[in-house]
């Protein structure tokens, strides 16, 4: 039994003087839905291209289920891939493209494929050139999910999908997870990662910033509390766990809360609170924490 779906060791890719990926060490355990988060140009697609053997690393190596990533005839038997920008053969209809990908691919569950065509609402009789971005994406997603391959590599898979199809996409990811498949999902959309992933690796400027569970990521950050009082607000600056107190009006206060909320709640209870709003920061804001400051 291999301990990871794939792993990389000091994986580096340089294009001339530009370093697209800098010594990436990443291991993705089997059976997880693993998010790969970073802004455009962070090196997400480069990593995936190296993983698929479409590009050669400048240094370091990558393995897929224990096999060298360059050995595509072996590794691609256990994975399916959806590129960020799907290009189809203009003369082949959707059905013909699915047929080609099924017959050259690692094996396809035809019944599941038919079900997915239905669920994703794809009209497979149209020639490739007439498909919109979203429909091209659907074709590639259906082909990939229908393989039931142990590893699904999805590069910004839902960027062109409408909300209904996106829901189906999330369902399909869930089914893959239930099936024991590993899903590696690259994205710059936090809601997507937040909704479907167990773990997230964050990439920035070609370097791995952090690997954490979605829950851990959230815990790293504070809760934002806005309180409105009947009278002048109490002094909260000395309460443990309370930071960045900001008076937003004569009787309103906003502050950040970290750690156990007990002391802050007690302090609030003593005052005459009219209204209280507690907001968990979105991953977006957590994300900005990583990229804020120097990069802006």
């Amino acid at each position: 039994m291999v301990s990871s779906a794939f792993h990389t060791e000091s994986l580096t890719k340089r294009y001339g003087r530009m370093t697209a990926l800098d010594r990436l060490d990443l291991s993705v355990p089997p059976g997880e839905v693993f998010g790969f988060l970073g802004p455009n140009g962070a090196g997400k697609s480069t990593t995936i291209r190296l993983l698929l053997g479409l590009a050669r690393p400048t240094a370091g190596r990558a393995w897929v289920f224990g096999a060298d990533a360059a050995d595509v005839a072996v590794t691609h038997r256990r994975l399916a891939y959806v590129p960020a920008d799907v290009a189809l053969w203009p003369r082949l209809t959707g059905a013909e493209t699915l047929e080609l990908l099924a017959r050259t691919g690692p094996g396809t569950d035809l019944a599941y494929r038919a079900e997915l065509v239905e669920r994703f609402g794809l009209d497979p009789s149209k020639p490739g050139r007439t498909y919109s971005t979203g429909n091209r994406q659907k074709v590639a997603l259906i082909a990939a999910f229908a393989t039931r391959a142990p590893l699904l590599v999805l590069d910004e898979p839902s960027s062109g999908l409408d909300p209904l199809v996106e829901r189906e996409f999330r369902r399909a990811v869930g089914e893959a997870r239930d099936n024991g498949q590993t899903v590696f999902l690259s994205s710059h959309q936090l809601s997507e990662v937040e909704a479907v992933c167990d773990k997230v690796a964050i990439l920035r400027a070609g370097r791995l910033v952090d690997v954490a569970t979605v829950r851990e990521l959230r815990r790293l950050h504070r809760t934002e509390v806005t309180a409105a009082f009947a009278t002048a607000p109490p002094d909260l600056t000395r309460v443990p766990g309370v930071e960045e107190v900001e008076t937003t009006g004569a009787t309103t206060v906003r502050f950040a809360l970290t750690g156990p909320p007990g002391p802050a709640l007690r302090a609030l209870a003593d005052a005459d609170v009219l209204n209280l709003a507690v907001r968990e920061p979105s991953l977006e804001e957590i994300f900005l924490g990583y990229y804020g400051g120097r990069e802006r």
Binding site: L54, R77, A87, W89, T97, L101, T104
Partner: peptide, 15 residues
């Protein structure tokens, strides 16, 4: 260059 080959080369098919 038109990226059509990417789909085919993501299959267990060598260049």
């Amino acid at each position: 260059t038109s990226r059509r080959l990417t789909l085919l080369l993501a299959q267990p098919v060598t260049r």
